[in-house]
């Protein structure tokens, strides 16, 4: 319930939106609906700025890579991404991971990306794909790397997110998550992108905030192996993952369990990328 909301604005241009937002002091952005509303901590919100009137709904895939507008719904993203080939294979399962049709229709890419919370399934995927955020503020438009820590998140403060760019290229990506039932927040998740000896591997829900854990030791193993994986690569990846992951405990899972299952998810992501069976 909004106890204080007295102003609703629907800007029809970027300039109007920037003026209303006033670098974060003017009101709260409504990218499509769910971001602000679901969490319930908005009793004090006085002004919402609904961005639906802005032309940020593009979904374009080309030689330069993929560009996704901030107002694209998760459902539209999930459907479109299914056709973008193996490099982007991780996007659809992450976009559609909380499989509630009404929420997928309302939740926007912009809302999800800007959400400073650890259980957003898109975050590790966008990090693994080295996404760029296209942001706008009074100084103009620029591209920022996808934030993986608190400092990166701070750089977004006061900006509007216009969309994101996913660089073109090869390789494959995959995404795995673990939850109690099918419609559930993840207890942990992981995403990987691999092309030859290059790899980016990230895990989420490894701390209280939106920061991601980059699995550098796993990436190191992969780049060392190139196309010549040892037969016991699963065991080695698991060990490397456990070295990178902290035992983050919250009321929903113990630290050791979350660490253990995240390592399994990393192995499964790589098995999928390699076209191998999940387990042996």
């Amino acid at each position: 319930m909004y106890l204080a909301l007295e102003r609703y604005t629907r800007p029809s241009s970027v300039a109007e939106a920037l003026a209303a937002y006033a670098g974060g002091k003017g009101g709260v952005l409504l990218g499509g609906g769910s971001t602000l509303n679901v969490e319930g901590n908005h009793e004090e919100v006085e002004h919402v700025i609904d961005l639906q009137g802005l032309p940020w709904k593009q979904l374009a895939s080309g030689a330069q890579g993929v560009e996704v507008g901030a107002l694209v719904s998760l459902r539209a993203l999930g459907r479109a991404a299914a056709a973008w080939g193996p490099r982007f294979a991780a996007i659809a399962p992450a976009a559609l991971a909380y499989p509630v049709v009404g929420l997928l229709n309302r939740a926007t890419v912009g809302g999800r990306v800007m959400l400073d919370r650890n259980d957003v399934d898109l975050h590790p995927v966008l990090a693994a794909l080295d996404a760029r955020l296209l942001v706008v503020d009074d100084a103009g438009e620029r591209a920022l790397p996808f934030p993986t820590d608190a400092a990166g998140r701070r750089a977004l403060a006061g900006c509007l997110l216009r969309g994101l760019q996913l660089p073109a290229g090869g390789g494959r990506s995959s995404f795995h998550r673990h939850a109690r039932i099918q419609v559930d927040r993840p207890l942990c998740n992981a995403a990987a992108w691999v092309e030859g000896s290059e790899a980016r591997v990230f895990a989420g829900v490894q701390g209280p905030d939106a920061a991601l854990t980059r699995l550098g030791a796993v990436e190191g193993k992969l780049s060392g192996w190139g196309d010549q994986r040892p037969p016991d690569w699963r065991g080695q990846v698991r060990e490397a993952a456990l070295a990178d992951l902290v035992a983050y405990e919250d009321p929903w899972a113990s630290g050791t369990y979350r660490q253990d299952v995240t390592a399994t998810l990393v192995v499964r992501c790589l098995a999928e990328v390699f076209g191998e069976a999940v387990s042996e």
Binding site: Y8, R10, L30, G33, N37, D50, V101, L103, R106
Partner: peptide, 17 residues
């Protein structure tokens, strides 16, 4: 909403304008 299923508890009435 425009043919798409949405939870109306998450849509401000003003957003439906």
């Amino acid at each position: 909403l425009d043919g798409e299923e949405v939870p109306s508890c998450l849509v401000l009435a003003a957003q439906a304008h």
